[in-house]
Every structure is written in C-alpha cells, then in structure tokens.
Write a protein that binds this DNA or RNA. Structure first.
Lengths: 239, 239
DNA sequence: CGCCGCATTGACGTTCGTCAAGTCTAGTGG
DNA sequence: CCACTAGACTTGACGAACGTCAATGCGGCG
C-alpha cells in the first residue's frame, strides 16, 4: 500500500527477453518504455492486488516471488500459481475489469506497472506487442491445462516431483542452479497448489530424501537425481 | 476431415451476442463477417484439431458439443473442458503456433473458422474486437482457476454438484431448461474432467438420486433440488 | 535467549480407486 | 420384428492413498 514510483526503462532491463517481445525497432521500444512508467515495491506478505479490486494494469515481476490464489465462499483457498521474475500477473482481471484472485508477495518484490489501456492502445500500433500479449495469455492457458492434468490424474509423489522439476527449470532459465533451490513458499502453500495437505507434502519430501533423490533441509532443497524425479512424473519413460 | 465450406454471416447469427463483441457499427460488423468466411462440420467422435497440429484459426462453435483434452506422455489423459454453442476453442494454440490439446466433437457439430492472422489484423483496427479477444482469453484463464479450485480442494460430491450446476447454467443461458439436461459425455469423460474415476461418478449420481436431489436415467438428468446442489458445493451458504 | 510459526512424524480414519460381476440400451443384422 | 452385441453404466467388496488429529522438533527473528 505504499506505491513507490521509480522511472525505469524496459529497453535496458535485463529481463526484457522474458517479459517483452523481441525484434522491435528503437522507436517501438521507446513507446513500450512509456507504458512501463512506474514500478511498485511490494513487501513480503503484502498483496499486489486482491480479489474484487478494480483491474487497471498488468504487472511484470522485476524481482521477488509471488503466489496467486482464489478463495471459495466457504473459506477454502487454492493457490493457482507461483510467479517469479520476468513473469506477468493480473491477466485474470481483464474479463470483468476486476481481479478475481489475490496476488501476494512471498518475498520482498518489485513489479513494473503496465496500465492495460495503454497496452491495448499500443498493441494496435505495434503488432509485435499485440502478438506478445496474445502469447502470454495463451501460455497461461496452456500452463493451467498442465496443472489440471496434475491435479486430476497424478498421485502425491508425481505431483511433487513435477512441481520441483518445473520450479528448478524456471529458475535455471533465470541463471540459477539446476539442482539447488530455496522454496519461497510454505508446505501448506505447496500443498494448496498441488491439491495435497501440508503433511502429505512433508512426508513426500521425506520419502524423496530417504530414496536419495533430494536433500531437504526446511526450505532448502538440493536435487540429487533429476532423472529419478523425471521417472516419477513419467513412469513410462526409461531414462 | 471433410471441411465443408459454407458462406455465412456473423451479423445475422443468432449466437452473435455469445461469441462476438457488441456495440459495433455496420461497417465493423461487415469486416468481421469477412473473417468468419468458412464453416466446418465435425461428425460425432471426430477431432476438430489434435495436439501437435499447426494452429491457424480459432473456432466458434455454432452447433454441437465438444470436449478438449490433453494427454501426458504415459497415456493418461485429462479432459480440460466441455464446450458448447457460442464458445470459442483453440486458444491454446496461439503460444507455440501448434495446438497442445485435442478437440473432439461429442455430437455432430458445426464451427465457424476464424483465421487468427485475420483476427489479429482486424483487432488492430477495431478496438471492440481487440477487447473482445482479450476478454475471451481472460475468461478462459478465470474458468481454469475455478477448475483448479475444484480439482484441488473439493470432494467427489462437491465436484459433481458444481459440474451439474455449471452445465445447466450455461445451457439455460442458451435457452434450455434450468432443471433438465442431457449429458453429451460419458461417465468416464466426466470423471476425467473432475479428477474422479467413472465408478465414483456413477456412485455419486446414484447417491444424489437416492437423496432426491436429481433423477438420473443414463444420460438424462433432471435436477429436482437446485438449492441442495448449491449447498453441497458451498456448505457454508444457508439457502 | 526465548518465542512463535513452520515442519516433521506417528497413529488412525475416510474417501476414493480397483477389480469384478452384472444390467441396461441403442444400434445392427437376420 | 426381434434377437444379438458392444459399449456404457451400475453396484458391491475390498484395499491403498491420502487426510485428520496430535505430539514433537527446529530455526529464525526480535
């Protein structure tokens, strides 16, 4: 609730290739810089937006880590995703001009605020931007299909293995280790995302550790046998 | 595999308000008619598109009923949605120019073929169309959040109750009964969508019937107590 | 240094999946 | 017109996986 306003430039952002389209000329890049005029800091535990709030902007994560979650009327809630640097959140708000989920920072974070009206206006001019927006939304739809497959048909070990592989792959794409990661979320949040109770998440971590597949020390995870995790997710594949 | 080509006009289509934006002037409507130049018939059991095929077009369903599903490498598959007249399918293909799921007709169907390149070009001119496309994609994202909540946190009875309420609500919006419906999909397909085995779906139907909440005769379902279904989905609410 | 939230682990219960037998129905062909 | 068949559906008995409840451990932050 303390929106810092710091002028920045996409054109010089090291996350450019993650959140912005490639192959634009100098003039187009400059126009995009205009859109992302403001950054906002979000403290750990604070919400970037909440269910019901008016939607005005998409947010590109510059630093930090978020979860998005929805709540059913009777209080249960479901984590719908974990987002890291270079990813865009807020797409849920477009359809009704109101956000339909909460976005909460799991560590101190900073986002680029992109007013959606400006995005729409500019993407009528710059077809590369238009295409990029469409792809971001389509990617989210495809990602959610994958989560539905996970929730609908996998057992606990498969879910957790898929989760770890996905996380580490995304972190690796950002220059982090392929085998070591620090979880920014609690067991309960992992469980909510995976459709499991926190105890089951904990037990499954312990099982993986017993089997020598990972080392787990609270939120610090080291993957010892990536292939073993892959085999758990996909028993058919003989790696 | 027998693409019928029949010229039609959105401007005179009775599903216009479902799949196309409102508030356009005559000239804009005419331009949209240009986009939807072709219809295609799909026989029951046939695929409109399959995972891996090149993506070129979105499809607006004119008549009939579809399921979309994805397959994990080891053969399991997950139904990701059921689509009816006025709904748009194919959004998953945008991100990689290839479809990532199968769309199969559950009864003889007819779709309007909308080449995506044309949609993008025209939506640069007609901001109402641009906005509409964004909303369709956002709506799909929000719908999938709801499915994640269902798969991640609901029990069998809650899932089936939510499923029935959702179906009947969408059918009602299309002028059908609020209380009676014919299921176009098998128990197995319902189960796949809801993350349950077909036997569990069948048992849960039987339980609802015993409790006097629905009458079930194979695929014909009559809802006797809508409020009871709502209470099952959302125990807190005292209707 | 002590507290509080998070994580782990164990014992037990519930829900749903599995396996199997049997029924219904729509469609086919005699 | 009716018998036959294949696929879909129902139902029961049983077991496995995961949830629930509860006790305990650990570590980070003030």
């Amino acid at each position: 609730m303390n929106p810092q306003t710091i002028k920045v430039a996409c054109s010089s952002c090291n996350l450019r290739e993650l959140c912005m389209p490639l192959g634009l000329n100098a003039g187009e890049l400059e126009q995009i810089d205009e859109i992302v005029g403001v950054r906002r800091k979000v403290k750990r535990g604070a919400a970037l937006f909440r269910n019901g709030e008016v939607f005005t902007s998409l947010f590109a994560i510059r630093t930090g880590f978020f979860k998005t979650s929805i709540a059913s009327e009777d209080g249960r809630d479901q984590v719908t995703g974990f987002q890291m640097a270079g990813e865009v959140i807020g797409l849920d708000g477009i359809v009704n001009d109101h956000h339909t989920c909460d976005a909460v920072a799991l560590e101190d974070a900073e986002v680029c605020v992109m007013p959606f009206a400006d995005i729409e206006a500019l993407s009528r001019e710059v077809s590369g931007l238009q295409r990029h927006i469409h792809k971001i939304m389509s990617r989210e739809i495809v990602r959610e299909h994958g989560v539905m497959l996970l929730l609908g048909s996998m057992r606990a070990e498969e879910r957790l293995a898929a989760f770890l592989l996905n996380l580490v792959q995304r972190l690796h794409a950002r220059g982090f280790s392929q085998s070591e990661l620090i979880l920014r979320m609690t067991r309960e949040e992992i469980g909510s995302y995976l459709g499991l109770k926190l105890e089951t998440v904990s037990r499954t971590f312990s099982k993986f550790a017993e089997d020598g597949i990972v080392e787990v020390k609270q939120r610090h995870v080291r993957i010892l046998e990536t292939d073993a995790l892959r085999r758990i997710v996909n028993p058919q594949t003989l790696l």
